[in-house]
Design a protein around this nucleic acid. Structure first.
Lengths: 190, 190
DNA sequence: CTTGTCTTTCAGAATATTCTGAAAGTTAGT
DNA sequence: ACTAACTTTCAGAATATTCTGAAAGACAAG
């Protein structure tokens, strides 16, 4: 059997990364496939992956497709070989920029849209000027709207931050480095 | 039935927040209970929650316990009433500081520990000075270690950032504001 | 110590997610 | 156009997660 420490370390990495799958909002197998491609640094074909991870062809195919959709794995080809090969982004910062980009698109944007819709469901002074609303109802509606606005504001800031992190290639690292070096533990300096 | 727009808006908010549950790594019901407490702004007892969300007593009890563990819901008491009441943190930034704090503790810290362990599984020049290792193996081990180190570096930065965001009360907001105001779209200025 | 009120627990049921494998689909080469 | 090599799809199986409800536990008041 394989007592090769490199293989063992790879397997352990794959297992650990698989456990993090929940944190990225992807399935365990997707994470394991990604881990395998990342940690070996090699381009592999479907059969290589099936064999190493002991998963079915269908599962491998679907996981690879999803990883391609997320933009963190890309197709590769070997000359004289009809098979498709796949390789993972090796730049860790680029990897996480891709993850943040997808999660903003899949989670934050739809949430903001929903929150705006909900915001439009309750009447306010602004919305209906002259119309009479029982005072008690108006008060609780205003408190409700304030709570919604606080949420909205938070996610708008989050989205702007995320887009800043994601946008031009390579900025994520600089942003983090700047943050950590320019701010002392007590907070930002003037 | 209730055509009260406020109730309808609350229900919609609860549903939307419930769908985000995956993003925070909590169950749908936990998120719905939290949403209910947040959007109504009221302290409610188990029976109130069971009735409004149409869930079982056991589910309500467990969800509330978990929310207490996360530190985003707290116990409250009403005089002359033996029942326990629960209310959600109303400061949105405090809410997300709590979430970040928990996720660092539950996900990032264990991951860093595992990555360090994995880092120690492969021999390097540093680790075993004189011992002979086949050249090919040594090269691939070094590439492997570099990949691990890149991951480690990323998560160390992430953890420091997270802790900065979380630490003294109120800093999260300032940090985000600083980020957004001090950096132009092209990147940080000297 | 007993009762009544409220809370927690947990085995099994219900639900949701993920995986398999065989069949259908696709494409390159001849 | 046919074949061989490879990829994708998807219904049903396997697995994992979440929920229920009844029983047990906890605690204050009398």
């Amino acid at each position: 059997m394989s007592a090769d420490p490199l293989i063992l370390a790879q397997d352990r990495f794959i297992a650990v990364w698989g456990q993090m799958s929940g944190a990225w909002g992807i399935s365990r197998t997707m994470a394991e496939v990604h881990a395998l491609l990342y940690i070996t640094g090699e381009a592999m074909c479907t059969d290589d992956i099936m064999e190493r991870l002991e998963i079915s062809r269908g599962n491998a195919s679907m996981s690879l497709r999803s990883l391609l959709d997320w933009g963190i794995v890309e197709r590769a080809h070997k000359r004289g070989d009809r098979k498709e090969y796949f390789s993972a982004e090796q730049d860790v910062w680029a990897l996480f920029r891709a993850i943040v980009r997808e999660r903003i698109a899949r989670e934050v944007d739809p949430l903001l849209a929903s929150l705006h819709e909900i915001r439009d469901m309750t009447p306010t002074d602004r919305a209906r000027r002259g119309e009479a609303i029982p005072e008690m109802l108006r008060d609780s509606a205003e408190a409700h709207n304030k709570r919604l606005d606080n949420m909205l504001e938070f996610f708008q800031v989050l989205e702007r931050l995320g887009n800043r992190f994601v946008s031009p290639a390579g900025r994520g690292l600089q942003m983090a480095a700047t943050l950590l070096s320019k701010m002392d533990p007590g907070g930002p300096r003037p």
